[in-house]
Design a protein around this nucleic acid. Sequence first.
RNA 1: GCCGCGGUGGCGGAAUUGGCAGACGCGCAGGACUUAAAAUCCUGUCCCGCUAAAACGGGGUGCGGGUUCGACUCCCGCCCGCGGCACCA
Length: 820
Amino acid sequence: MADREEFNPAKFEKKWQEKWEKEGIYRTPSKVDPKKKFYCLDMFPYPSGAGLHVGHVEGYTATDIYSRYMRMRGFQVLHPMGWDAFGLPAENYAIKTGIHPQETTNKAIKTFTSQIKSLGLSYDWQREIGTHRPDYYKWTQWFFLLLYKMGLAYKKKAPVNWCPSCQTVLANEQVVDGKCERCGTEVVQKKMDQWFFKITAYADELLEDLKKIDWPESTKEGQRNWIGRSEGALIKFSIFNDQFSNSKEGEQIEVFTTRPDTLFGATYLVLAPEHPLVNKITTSEYQEAVKKYQEETRKKTALQRSALEKEKTGVFTGAYALHPVNGRKLPIWIADYVLMTYGTGAVMAVPAHDERDFQFAKKYQLEIRPVVKPEKGEWNFDEQAFVGEGVNVNSEFLDGLKTKEAKKKIISWLEEKGLGKKDVKYKLRDWLISRQRYWGAPIPVIYCTKCGTKEKPAIIPVPEEDLPVKLPDDVDFKPTGESPLKYSKKFHEVTCPVCGAKGEGVVWRESDTMDTFVDSSWYFFRFTDPKNEKEFASRKAIKIWMPVDLYVGGAEHTVLHLLYSRFFTKVLRDAGYIDFDEPFLKLRHQGLILAEDGRKMSKRWGNVINPDDEVKKFGADTVRLYEMFMGPIKDAKPWSTAGERGIYRFLKKVWRLQYKVKKQLPKEEEERQINKLIAYVGENIERLNMNIIIARFMEFVNYYSSQPYLPFEVWKRLLLVMAPFAPHITEELWARAGLPFSIHQQAWPTYDPKMIADKKVKIAVAFDGKTRGIIEIGKDSSQNEVIEKIKGEPKLAKYLSKTPQKVIFVKNKIINFVGE
RNA sequence: GCCGCGGUGGCGGAAUUGGCAGACGCGCAGGACUUAAAAUCCUGUCCCGCUAAAACGGGGUGCGGGUUCGACUCCCGCCCGCGGCACCA
C-alpha cells in the first residue's frame, strides 16, 4: 500500500501522446475493406489568432470517441484534420499591422495543432491540408474551371451586396438581416461585374435529396426555406396605354403567382421599381413621379427596404394592363414591396386575398374584389385579406370551385390560350463567388483584348497545366475596394494562352479571389487523397472513403457550407467523377458552450474559457470527459468549473481502482454488469449520447470503490470501454496492468446478449394507479407468482385486503390493482 | 408573421416501445480525518404535512383540457424561451 501513487495526469499524458505519434497508431489504414470503412469528419476550423476554443473541443472529442470506437470495432477509419485558412480576419490584421496573412495564418495553425495534439485527439496528421497552400488551391481553381466548362460559372453585371467595411461583395448567404455576417456593417446594393456559380440549376435536386440524408430536422428545414420552392403560374397581361394603342400585340407583363385561382380578384398590377418595362410604359404625365420614386428606392439599403412594419409606398405609372380573361383595365403601379430579384419582378395584386396588396390598396384606395370565400363562416373583406383556401365566387367559370380545382382549371385555361403556364420559382439565387480581396484563391481567368475586343475582352480560362495561379507577394494591404492583386506587377505580367498577346491593358489576369466557401466546398474529397498532384483526389480514393459517414460541426453553416458542399457534390456527379449525390450521410451539430455566467463567451465580457488552461489544470482526459458530460452534444449549455472538478474527482477514483484489482473471477452478477456496460456504451456512442455513458461509468466505478476488490477481467474490460473517452489514463492503467501497448489497438470487448438479460426484475406494485412499492422477482414470473410474492410482503399486502375489480399485469414491469 | 426545436429540483441534466419521475454530476447541509486548511471519505438533499427520526399521507415534469388501469412520454387548445427565415407574390 505504501507505494500508491497519486493521480497526476501531467506525468503520463504527454508521454503517451508522443508514443502514439511515434508509433503512428492513428494513421489511416492503406488496406481498406469497403464494407468496413468509416469516414468521420469534423468541420475544419478557421485558424484564428484567438486559438482553439472549448466549442471546437466538444465536437472534436465526440468524433474522436466515435473514431476510436469504430477502430476498435475493426473498422478502417479516416479521421482527418485541416485548415480553412483563407479569409478576411488575417487580411484585416495585415492591413492594420502589415504582417503578411501567410505569416499570421501559419502561426495560428501551429498553435491550433499543438492545442489539438494536447487533447489526445486521434487525427491522422499525415493527411493534414490547408486551403491556403498552393497544392490545395490549385484544385480549388481546377473546380472553378470545371464549373466554367460545364456552363455553371459565369460572369455577369448585376446588383450585388457590397460591404463598405470589408470592401468586398458578399454572397446572399453572407448577408444576415441586411448586414455583413462578418463585421455587422449594413450592406449596400451595387451594380458590379461579378462571377457566379449556377447553384440554382440544382435547386430542385438540393431540395429533393434532403429526404435521403440523416440530418437534424432544423438544418434540413433551414435549407428548404432558403431554397424556397413555390409552385404557381406565370400569367401574361397585355399593356394598354396611348403609346401602345397602335401596336396590336403591344408589350406584355409577365407575373408569377402562387394563387392563380384568385386571378379574377386582381385589381391592379405592381412592378418592382427597377423593372425594365417601367420606363417604357410610364405615360408622360407620370414620368416625373416615377423617376423620383425609382431614385428613392435606389438609395435605400436592403435593410431599409425590407423594414418590418414599414408602410407600403408606390406610384401609379399612368399605364393599364388588360385582364387576360375579361379585358378589365387594371392600373399598373410601381412599389418597392415588389422585388426585382424574385419571380418576374412583377405581381398581379389581389388585395382581397393578399396581406400586402390589401395594405397597399387601402392606402391608395384601389379596388378590393373578393373572389374566394371561406368554406365555413363569413369574412369581412373591409377589415382584412382572406389568404386561406376556400371556394371561388365572382370568378366566372371558376365559381363554386374549391381553391385546388380552381387553380388547376385556370392554369389549363391559360395554357390553352397561350396566356400563361404552370411554373415553379425559387428564392435561391446564384452564388456570387468573387471577392475583392487578397487572401483567397485567385480566380483562374485571363482577359485578352486581342482575342476579344477593347470593349469586350475575351474570357480565357487559365489552362489546367498552368495551375495553380499563385498569389503574388508584392502587394499592399490597403482596402481600396479592389483586390490588392490588381496592383501586383508580377501578377499581371501574363501572355494570352490562346493568341500569345501580352502587355498592359492588352492582356491581364482576373484580380478577384474566390469566396472562402469555395475552398471548403470540396475539402472533404481532398482528405481522401491529400497528396495527389494529378487530381483533386483519385477516383479510387473517393470510391473507398466517400461519402462521409459522420459529420459534426456547428449549426451556423446551414445555408452556407452545407448547401454549397452538396452543390459541388452534385456537380462532380454530373461531370462523371463520382456516382453518389450526397456528401454527408449523417450530420450532427454541437451546441454553443456558454460561459459560467450563462452569456456567450466573449473577450468583451472576460468570460472565455481557454481549453489550454483547463488541460494544464486538470489534464486532457478531464477536459474531454467534462465536455462530453455537460449534456447532449446538440444543446447549448453553460460551462461549470465545479462540474469539471467533479470529473477530475471521478478520474481519481478510477485511478485508485487499480489498487483493488485482484486476479479473481467475477461473480455472476458482476459478469452480467460488465456485459451490460459494454452493450450500453456501444449503443450510446452510436447515438452520440456521451453524457449518459459517462454517468454509467460513474455508477460502475462507484460500485467497485465500495467493494473489497475488483476482478481483473472486469477491470480490463472497463478500461477498454473507457478508452475512447479518456485515452490517456486508460493507456496508463492498461500498461500498469501489464497489458501490451496499445489499448487503442485492442478489439472492442464483446458481450453475451443472453448474459445481459437480468434474471430478476423489479416490478412496481400499484393500487389504483399509485405505486406503493417495488418487489424483486424472477424474470417472466406469472401474475399469480407476483401476487403470491406481494402477499408475503406485509407493507404491500395490507393494500391487498380490498377486493380489486381488475388487475392490470404487465410482465416484468408493473402490476396494478384497480379498485372500485 | 411563418418554420424548426425546446420547457423536468437551487444548477447541468436522466427516464429504449406509455409502466418506480429526478439516474449521474454540481451545489448545499451535517459528520470523519487534520493544530488548521486543502484533498479525501461517509451521510442527507423534489416540495408540503405529521414526526425526535422514521413509518405514513398528500402534491409534483410550463398552463388548461382529453385518451388510458396508468401520461414527462400520446391527442386538442394556450403560454413562455431559443434558433432560422422574413414584403419571396
